[in-house]
Amino acid sequence: MSSLTLHPDKLRHPFKRAYKRFRKPLRCALIACAALLVAHQTNIDDIAYRQLAEYITPAELKDRSIWLNQYHIDGQPILLDNITEISGLTWSSDTQTLFAVANDPPRVVEFKPDGQILRIIPLKGFHDVEAITWIGNDTFLVADERRQDVGQVVIKADTQTLDRADSPIVTIGIGAGRNKGFEGLAWHPESQSIFVAKERDPLTIYRIKGFISESRNNLEVSQDEGLNKAVARDNQDLSGLHLDSRSGNLLVLSDQSSLLSEITMDGDIISSIDLGWLPGTGITQAEGVAMDDKGDIYIVEEPNRLYRLTKKK
């Protein structure tokens, strides 16, 4: 029986011809993959989106909204001396200062916009405070993540400590005891209601009416389907809230998504900013957001960094 013998060089010829034929498309594909990788690493897609949104959005909408597309980090991050485990953040128009909550041990920290610490107020009886919001007249709301409750406290110029036993408390308690509870608070003065952000599992924003009243007998806890759909669209979790009284829109902060979004009460996403894209290393563990009377935005990053974002002029 005869046998057929092929020389190894002849076996390689078809592959050489195939390589020559597809060499150009292969190079184009490799270049495209590299470009996508660079875009992912440098957030070129986010830059392009922001530029497009800036171009096509009517000036009227920009004027009546917060319009995050025009914000940038002002200066370097500020280290808050001797503070760790910082979380929720709020601005007080009474004192023109910022208030944050921190744990280990639970406490409220008051500081100036430049990061100068003014005082530290121990929180007696509180366990895992993760959010704070100012509602006026030296009055604040604080949220306990694991207990999933909200307490009302008064912080005056001479306040040295705050006791849970002296505070009105409202408990929602859905999945209480888990470390995926309340992470954000926002106050809506017109409706006298509180927006409460549950971190995830499920990611939800609750609305509480009737808590800021003398009787508190007619508490109403609800969820807005449109708002929660919008919040869940781009966010893996929730880590902070702020309600802008001028536009009526919510600032929604996500730590895991490195995202700050502006969302209307009807669930329309107006603008957003990718915090990981910001110059430097970006903001990697955002835990609280607030806005002052001038419109400057402040974000705290765990363990103790403060960022200020201002609008480009």
Rank of each mutant, 00 (worst) to 15 (best):
D237W: 03
D94C: 00
I83L: 08
L61G: 10
D268W: 05
H188S: 15
P25G: 00
S193D: 10
R207V: 06
I155V: 04
D293F: 01
L61C: 07
A18L: 07
A102R: 05
G240E: 11
E287W: 11
C28L: 12
K156H: 14
L79E: 13
I132M: 08
Y71C: 04
G151Q: 10
D293R: 06
K62T: 11
A290Q: 07
Y49W: 14
V108W: 09
R23F: 01
R21Q: 10
A102M: 04
K124A: 09
C28K: 09
D63K: 06
Q285E: 09
I208H: 14
I212D: 13
L89E: 13
G151R: 13
N43G: 11
E287P: 03
G184P: 01
G210Y: 08
L309T: 02
K229Q: 14
Q152S: 05
A165Q: 11
Q51C: 15
A165P: 03
E301S: 04
T90A: 05
P77D: 04
D237C: 03
I56R: 15
L275I: 06
I174R: 08
I47Y: 02
K62P: 07
N235D: 04
A232I: 00
Q192N: 15
L162H: 00
E190S: 08
K112F: 00
R305Q: 05
D244I: 09
L251A: 14
A59Q: 08
Q192T: 12
R12C: 04
Y307G: 02
S254K: 13
